[in-house]
Design a protein around this nucleic acid. Structure first.
Length: 111
DNA sequence: ATGTTGACTTGGA
DNA sequence: GTCCAAGCCAACA
């Protein structure tokens, strides 16, 4: 664990995200103890495709519930489709009822 | 070694 | 409510 790289730590948290739930980069960053490193979370996600097993990056959105990272997916619609597949309604690259679907690792894992 | 970038967040106007 | 600017840390060139 302590040996885990910043990327791996991010991957683990993302993989813990329940199906049909989403979280924000800041929440993950905060869980890692560096809320200011929210950008690093996104950066780590950029390399998520190199992670094994792959992480559900589609469940990670920005604080606005906007699919900010959809551009980085193999297809611009891949992220939205993945979310809808899990029962999440996405309109205009925006997660509907995001507040209700939000999954905070600090609240769920740090119980 | 330094400088720039980035799937972000927060605060101020 | 919106828009602009600054901060933050790690990886990449």
């Amino acid at each position: 664990m302590d040996r885990a790289d910043f990327f791996e730590q991010v991957y683990q948290v993302v993989r813990l995200i329940p199906e049909g739930r989403v979280t924000s980069y800041g929440a993950i960053a905060q869980y890692l103890g560096a809320k200011s490193a929210s950008r690093m979370v996104g950066y780590a996600m950029n390399a998520s495709h190199t992670a094994h097993p792959p992480v559900p990056a589609h469940r990670v959105v920005n604080r606005n519930g906007l699919l900010s990272g959809k551009h980085h997916f193999p297809s611009a619609t891949a992220m939205q489709q993945a979310l809808e597949k899990e029962g999440i309604t996405v309109i205009d690259d925006q997660v509907q009822d995001f507040k209700n679907l939000f999954w905070d690792p600090n609240a769920e894992l740090a119980l």
